[in-house]
Nucleic acid binder design. Structure first.
Lengths: 288, 288
DNA sequence: ATTATTAAATGGCTCACCCATTCAATGGAA
DNA sequence: TTCCATTGAATGGGTGAGCCATTTAATAAT
């Protein structure tokens, strides 16, 4: 770590030093003692820099959803990096939901509308990595749901209530026809609609993120054991009535007791419930 | 889209067809009519597949924090992809906080402990992309903070209270010496400690994610206008006292009134507050 | 025993390709 | 004219070979 530029390359086998970014083309043999402009521009990794710059353009409003980035070949040249490295950055941004990459003529990298389900993946990773526990997640869900119910009571519009009503009807159909897993799908949608009816997308996002994993467990439980909540649609109707009347006390009480019964259902025969299976399993209608 | 394998390549200039994954090495010239095993394995993009498989191993518990993946060259070969594509996947996972890539002998791709601050980036992206609004975020923060205060009253331990106490002392020092921006840092830390004192990492994560952006605004405001909350440390002490007494009503009331006064401060001279500047600005102590 | 040197492993990055998909332009048939 | 098939260029998807920079362990020199 003395001179920061002391290469002890044995013999420099290939004589051709390709244009290695802004590095001077190796004049050391001429006796020049460590050229002043020798320090490379970047100390961090190139792809981090690129991600950051694109996010900066986004934050500054220079880039907006729908905008298209230059073609990979052009952009790579503009940034002075290889196409491969640029692609690493674009891929990361795509996984983060910021970009969409599209092939073909008129294709390119397009800035996306924000995907509110992105938080779900974070929650799932935290769970997979053991940073958070199922217990913490369940507990958080109870509290968030309590908040959501209160906000929904305050803010739900007729369209929201209608959507919930329609959802309950689908739940009734599924129940009548014994389609248990479809009913789980209905539940997933019910909570999503409820979250949306708060009128606050941040709250809704948070709610969805704590609900998604929970529904995986319910799905796994129902799928493996065949058990199912009794009188689900009926309870939903009671809840919806309370919501329509803006009766916070009643709505929160109904939801809380329902959650408790679901929790009891999940906890019976606990050995069958594997975090790993629930997390790894790919389910219909689930953003993988 | 007829045969799915009808290349109309003019003349196939290079004769060397390198081992293109599990594709048969081009026997068409011999007259073989579209070899049966011609369909490539993957229909989705390779890097998505790779990310998914690694996450699956994680979910199944085969991979755990601290584990090391095989060297890029080996893993690429195992997966039957080029090293470049594998790197795209690894980079994505690194940006997602799942991996850490480390150079040198004994380096490699190591599974990380989950980084609870990952949600902040999602929130920031959503704001940058205009999917959520500052108003929604502020509103959500009020509600989440209310919940956090209630949980902290219920669950805070002595160590949590001591940490808050120490934080308040630093706030007092900063106030006395006129270090306004340091005091903002103290505030950021205060809310982080408060969130942690709920004893629930999911709640804490949520709280942090709605607080991080807010503190950027406060920072930008204080930084540009020089104004600052009056009697901040004093109010913090009152709040901490209520927390120590497990007095939920008092604690929530104190926090609520404080939030309102902060909101008033932020909203005076609103023209100076730019979402873009606040988001793009890099601040000390801020995970970039 | 300590310190400097060497060598190997590994990620970081580049270059120069080829492949597959998409879509606008073109041109011929109805 | 109208409609459909063909063509060709743009663009992302992917490959492989190879060099560079950093890190660490082994080895040699002092």
């Amino acid at each position: 770590m003395s001179t920061k530029s002391s290469p002890r390359t044995p013999a420099r086998p290939r004589s051709s030093t390709p244009n290695r970014r802004e590095r001077v083309p190796d004049h050391r043999a001429a006796g020049a003692p460590a050229a002043p402009a020798f320090r490379p521009i970047h100390t961090r990794r190139a792809f981090e820099e690129i991600c950051e710059r694109i996010r900066e353009q986004l934050a500054l409003g220079v880039l907006k959803p729908g905008d298209k980035l230059p073609p990979e070949r052009d952009l790579a040249q503009q940034l002075g990096v290889s196409r491969n490295v640029l692609r690493e950055a674009l891929r990361s941004l795509e996984m983060a939901g910021v970009l969409r990459l599209q092939k073909g003529v008129k294709g390119g990298a397009f800035i996306q509308e924000g995907d509110t389900s992105r938080m779900n993946g974070v929650m799932r990773d935290m769970l997979s990595l053991g940073t958070i526990s199922v217990r913490e997640l369940s507990e958080a869900r109870v509290h968030v749901l309590d908040l959501v119910v209160r906000l929904a009571c305050a803010n739900a519009r007729k369209a929201d209530l209608d959507a919930l009503e329609a959802n309950i009807r689908r739940t009734e159909d599924a129940t009548r026809e014994g389609r248990l897993l479809d009913r789980v799908e209905c539940s997933r949608e019910f909570y999503k609609l409820l979250a949306a009816s708060t009128g606050n997308k941040v709250i809704a996002m948070i709610m969805d993120s704590v609900t998604e994993i929970h529904m995986r467990f319910v799905y796994a439980k129902v799928s493996s054991s065949g058990v199912a909540m009794a009188r689900l649609a009926e309870k939903r109707r009671q809840f919806l009535a309370a919501l329509g009347e803006r009766n916070v006390a009643s709505a929160t009480r109904l939801m809380r007791t329902h959650l408790e019964s679901v929790q009891r259902m999940l906890e019976q025969d606990p050995g069958a419930m594997s975090l790993h299976v629930a997390l790894a399993e790919v389910q219909p209608g689930m953003r993988r």
